[in-house]
């Protein structure tokens, strides 16, 4: 079984947010509620100012605290892909996983609209869905037991690494690359649309994979290693400063 992971090259990323938009379209996200987001950081004051950005999907941790704290096992690690998923049939909406996620990548449906007007009112729901967006994925891809599709009320959702795509990938492939016609359809949306090719997706257990090569050769780092969550998203930052400045260090 593959152990899918992602590498994001911060030296190549332009912060264009195409990944955010593609994810929102692919996974029927509410505007402003981004499973895949790009966070911006500014340090210093004009004219000595530095702006940096950090694309942030779910880290799909090897040792995820969200899985450990979930009282109903609604959050679980999918054995076939190693991806952390949410079973909406079991989620009780206690939000403990949101509290326990060190990366802030989980979303609760029942909230005031982040962006006005509320699109949920413009596209009212049928059945269990909380809304009915015109750009939603084909119905046959939806799987509430994996947290894929349009979120019902009272549950938590998160990035699935486009599980509905990667789980269909041919067996034994080392990387899912948008430039390879054989794997393009199975590549996560955020990776596939990345114009400067700052994202790479592959099997972390396969020594031949591009992601392993990049992590080894360019010194891939993971966020918040001190939590012991062991993310499967690696960042290439050129070996320079910390990827994410803390708010205290930003204040100087």
């Amino acid at each position: 079984m593959p152990n899918w992971g992602m590498v994001i090259d911060l030296e190549t990323c332009t912060g264009c947010q195409a990944c955010t938009t593609a994810c929102a379209m692919e996974n029927s996200r509410l505007p402003g509620e981004n499973w895949q987001d790009v966070l911006f950081y500014s340090e210093g004051e004009y004219p000595n100012l530095n702006i940096s950005w950090l694309p942030r999907p779910c880290m799909q941790c090897e040792n995820p605290s969200c899985v450990s704290v979930c009282p109903t096992r609604a959050t679980y690690v999918d054995e076939g892909t190693g991806v952390v998923l949410v079973d909406w049939n079991k989620c009780i909406g206690c939000k403990y996983c949101m509290v326990a996620c060190p990366y802030g990548v989980r979303f609760y449906m029942d909230e005031a609209p982040v962006v006005e007007p509320d699109v949920r009112e413009a596209f009212p729901a049928r059945g269990r869905r909380t809304w009915n967006p015109p750009f939603r994925m084909p119905d046959e891809y939806e799987d509430p037991s994996k947290g894929i599709g349009i979120q019902p009320s009272g549950v938590v959702s998160k990035c699935t690494f486009c599980h509905h795509k990667i789980s269909q990938a041919p067996e034994g492939v080392a990387d899912l690359d948008e430039d390879n016609p054989e794997t393009r359809e199975y590549t996560p949306a955020c990776v596939r649309v990345c114009a400067p090719k700052a994202r790479f997706f592959g099997d972390l257990d396969n020594p031949e994979s591009k992601v392993n090569e990049l992590i080894a050769e360019k010194g891939g780092v993971r966020l918040r290693e001190e939590t012991g969550n062991k993310p499967k998203v690696y960042y290439l930052s050129g070996g320079g400063s910390p990827v994410v400045p803390g708010s205290r260090s930003r204040r100087g």
């Binding site: 009282p71 109903t72 096992r73 609604a74 049939n89 079991k90 989620c91 009780i92 909406g93 206690c94 939000k95 609760y108 449906m109 029942d110 009320s153 009272g154 549950v155 938590v156």
Partner: peptide
Amino acid sequence: GNPWIALWA
């Protein structure tokens, strides 16, 4: 969010 599911799940 779903208290009744909590009772069995």
